[in-house]
């Protein structure tokens, strides 16, 4: 029997086994190169779908809140909140606040000293305040008035009648029976606003009950106008002999 006959004979004998093995090998090969990538794709789609689904839910929630907000009301409140905690040192609002307190309480402010430091808020060395992104502005001032006026002044200073101020120390002495001279040291604060509001799918921050109460308290405050004296002061006559 020659070789080819022997091969043919053996092939015929094991052809079922060989064919089966071939099929199994092809199935394994196809599974690796076709089925597994498809499974991977399926998994990716699953992941992406759940991600996009969550994003969609967040966006819907955000949209619902944004649609329900009264832009005019929030704009007004924003202006008032900025008067209490401005984004920069804003010394004008400090002077305005003291002027208002003076007229409301009847005390006389005899000295104010605001340690403004570098005026350019962005590049200045900032003194960290009681929280993240809150900066201190050291202030000191002295007043003259009755004890009742003095108490009233402190009460208004601690409320939101202007810039939020924290008193560090008070020292007073009696000029006469009902006239005291008080010196204060403390801090005014400012909080720079971030340059961006984050990605579009960033969830809106929630203003909790505390925040809501605070906002309605601030919303009911009258708006304080910062008046800067301009150049329109009457300076008198240029010609002395003119009527």
């Amino acid at each position: 029997m020659n070789t080819s006959n022997l091969f043919a004979k053996n092939f015929k004998k094991y052809e079922i086994i060989l064919a089966s093995l071939l099929v199994i090998i092809i199935v394994i090969f196809l599974s690796i190169y076709l089925l597994l990538p498809n499974f991977d794709k399926v998994q990716q789609i699953f992941l992406q779908q759940s991600k996009v689904g969550k994003k969609l839910q967040e966006l819907k929630k955000k949209e619902t809140i944004l649609v329900s907000l009264d832009q005019t009301e929030y704009k007004d409140n924003f202006t008032k909140i900025k008067q209490i905690l401005p984004p920069d040192k804003d010394y004008v609002s400090l002077f305005t606040m003291f002027d208002n307190l003076q007229s409301v309480t009847g005390i006389t402010i005899i000295r104010t000293d605001f340690q403004l430091g570098t005026i350019s808020t962005g590049s200045a060395n900032k003194t960290q305040g009681p929280g993240k992104n809150i900066y201190n502005l050291p202030i000191s001032f002295a007043i003259l008035g009755s004890y009742r006026q003095f108490q009233n002044f402190i009460s208004l200073l601690s409320s939101f009648s202007g810039r939020i101020v924290s008193i560090k120390s008070i020292q007073w002495d009696y000029k006469s029976e009902d006239l005291i001279n008080a010196s204060f040291t403390g801090y005014a604060f400012y909080s720079p606003l971030p340059s961006s509001i984050g990605a579009i799918d960033t969830p809106l921050p929630i203003i909790d009950k505390n925040g809501q109460d605070l906002m309605s308290k601030i919303a009911n405050l009258p708006e304080v106008k910062n008046e800067i004296i301009d150049g329109s002061i009457v300076t008198g006559k240029n010609d002395l002999f003119r009527q």
């Binding site: 944004l66 009681p130 604060f189 971030p194 984050g198 921050p205 906002m215």
Partner: peptide, 24 residues
């Protein structure tokens, strides 16, 4: 614009609350 105002208000309220808590 509304989102910006809302976000800033929320941050500032938190900061004011923090300062108010530290006030004596």
């Amino acid at each position: 614009t509304t989102e910006g105002i809302y976000t800033f208000i929320s941050m500032m309220l938190k900061n004011i609350d923090q300062i108010a808590r530290s006030q004596k």
